[in-house]
Amino acid sequence: MELEPGPLELRLRREFAGTRGESRVVVRQAVDLAESGQYEADVGVELTNDVIVSELEDAPNGTPADRWNWWIGSLEVAYTGYGRFGIQRFRK
């Protein structure tokens, strides 16, 4: 089963109380990560909606982006090369 962006966005909003825009950004990063093949090569598991939601459930409380960044940080420590998939916030 491959990553499904539309259903993933809905799950993120439902399960982690994310806004539509924030959940879309997480999904965009998840698609980039899946397309890179890096996660599957490092972990040996295909990146799917269920995998992402399960990993984000393990993160401390927060929005989808907070949880995503926590998980990406964990992957960066374990394997390196994941920082580019993090979500940055810019303030004006």
Rank of each mutant, 00 (worst) to 15 (best):
E2Y: 12
G6C: 11
P7N: 10
L10I: 15
R11E: 11
R14H: 10
A17F: 08
A17H: 07
A17W: 04
G18H: 09
R20Q: 12
R20H: 01
G21K: 05
E22F: 07
S23C: 12
R24S: 03
V26Q: 03
R28C: 03
L33W: 00
S36Q: 06
G37F: 01
G37L: 11
Q38V: 13
Q38C: 01
E40N: 02
A41M: 09
D42P: 06
V45R: 06
E46Y: 01
L47R: 02
D50W: 06
V51G: 04
I52L: 08
S54G: 12
E55M: 15
E55K: 11
E55D: 02
L56K: 03
L56F: 09
E57W: 13
E57F: 10
D58R: 15
A59T: 13
A59Q: 08
A59N: 06
A59R: 08
N61C: 03
N61Y: 05
G62R: 06
G62E: 05
T63S: 09
N69T: 09
W70Y: 12
I72N: 00
I72E: 02
S74T: 11
L75K: 08
L75R: 11
V77W: 00
Y79G: 01
Y79M: 05
Y82K: 04
Y82W: 06
G83K: 08
I87L: 01
Q88F: 11
R89Y: 10
R91P: 15
